[in-house]
Design a protein around this nucleic acid. Structure first.
Lengths: 215, 215
DNA sequence: TAACTGCCAACTGTCGACAGTTTACAGTTT
DNA sequence: AAACTGTAAACTGTCGACAGTTGGCAGTTA
């Protein structure tokens, strides 16, 4: 969907701006000053404005007439709403993955799970990066590019809900077990239970994120 | 998601351009000539380019470096992929609707169904407009704005797959029965069966659209 | 001191122009 | 006649400048 390796300044600006928002360098509530960001990226306002439109379409900024772009806040209700969408997408992805997975797909998922456990036992908290990697591997197995793309977008918004917050509670041990259970069910092609476990997994994740939100 | 009643030229251009693409005035495969369309809309290229970026994010045009925007073709495989996404979204919506529906929601859905049957018995083919209206009413009952927005986007792309084709085969009698069955199940809050019937309904619709595609 | 008003700076929205790339066409060669 | 090449037109990508709006600040008045 974002295929052609954008070499245009607008394309680069889109990537750079998305990074700025997702890393919390531009915090929720902050307005995107066009001249400032344009200078920072070393480009003019034209391409930057195009990039801002792109980010707005991804939902990472809101467009307010004559006030430009603003990174949106997200409360618990918004997180719940996002997870409703994510649940719809990833439960279906789990079903499809259970139907379509190859041995390679299973290996990829197992590899991610193994690395996660290694980190966990070494005392390192389960990094968000590896959780994303697992879901990414599952989506590859599902072979539904449109669903994968939408999951990517909603994952971004979920990340945004936690930017600027003290520190990531990370996923706990339960997530690792959920992942392994999913792998097993997908291996057995039990798509019904796979969807069920995915729903439970996302429900837990959602609850944990909401719990970590400030008041 | 597209909330603030865009009064900017870029916002108006986005709406106008989307209409141009969805009505088939710009056919799949055609390139969007910036100067031509800008003149046609009576604006300069700046705002138009921003609108094009917006449309690209909606998936209604593809961006090719140094060649601008092009309305994408869609083959049977693409339609199937789109309906995988739509199934994920609308089955979950059916479940949510079955859980959350009020009497008002049910009335709205029944009203749409009634009008559809009236048209059908009067010999008028089931207009696409009313099919969209039913799904819209169901999404309102589901009360999940993010899911509703994504359904809108995917519906647009589905419409796009049929632009420029001889004539719409329309939905047949089966769809009306599906709709009524869905209403009943949602009324009874039988979310499991509602999702099941929605899946069957979308599967039928998908098959019919693919059948109507050229070669 | 509080509220109101008018001005000014900052920022967004828009436009026209220039530069670099692509594409089509004409001319040339084999 | 077909293929190749060079050139010119067309189009996209980018920039700088101008116009209109918003928001804050100072000055004034009650």
């Amino acid at each position: 969907m974002t295929q052609p390796l954008h070499l245009s300044l607008a394309g680069q600006a889109l990537d750079a701006l998305r990074e700025l928002v997702l890393t919390g360098e531009i915090l929720p509530g902050a307005r995107v000053n066009e001249v400032e960001v344009a200078n920072r990226l070393g480009i003019s306002r034209g391409p930057l404005r195009e990039a801002i439109r792109g980010l707005a379409a991804e939902g990472l900024v809101e467009l307010v007439p004559h006030k430009g772009a603003r990174v949106p806040f997200a409360d618990a209700a918004e997180v719940r709403a996002l997870f409703e969408l994510r649940t719809a997408l990833e439960c279906e992805a789990a079903k499809l993955a259970a139907t379509r997975r190859t041995e390679q797909d299973l290996d990829r998922m197992r590899a991610v799970s193994k690395e996660s456990r290694k980190n966990y036992h070494a005392g390192v908290k389960f990094p968000h990066r590896l959780d994303l990697a697992f879901h990414q591997a599952l989506l590859e197995a599902a072979r539904s590019p449109h669903i994968a793309e939408q999951v990517r977008l909603v994952q971004q918004k979920v990340i945004l809900t936690r930017t600027g917050l003290p520190d990531d509670p990370q996923h706990q041990h339960g997530s690792l077990d959920d992942h392994d259970e999913l792998i097993e069910l997908i291996e057995q092609q039990d798509w019904e239970k796979a969807a069920q476990i995915m729903r439970r997994h996302l429900s837990r994740t959602c609850a944990q994120i909401i719990k970590s939100l400030p008041d």
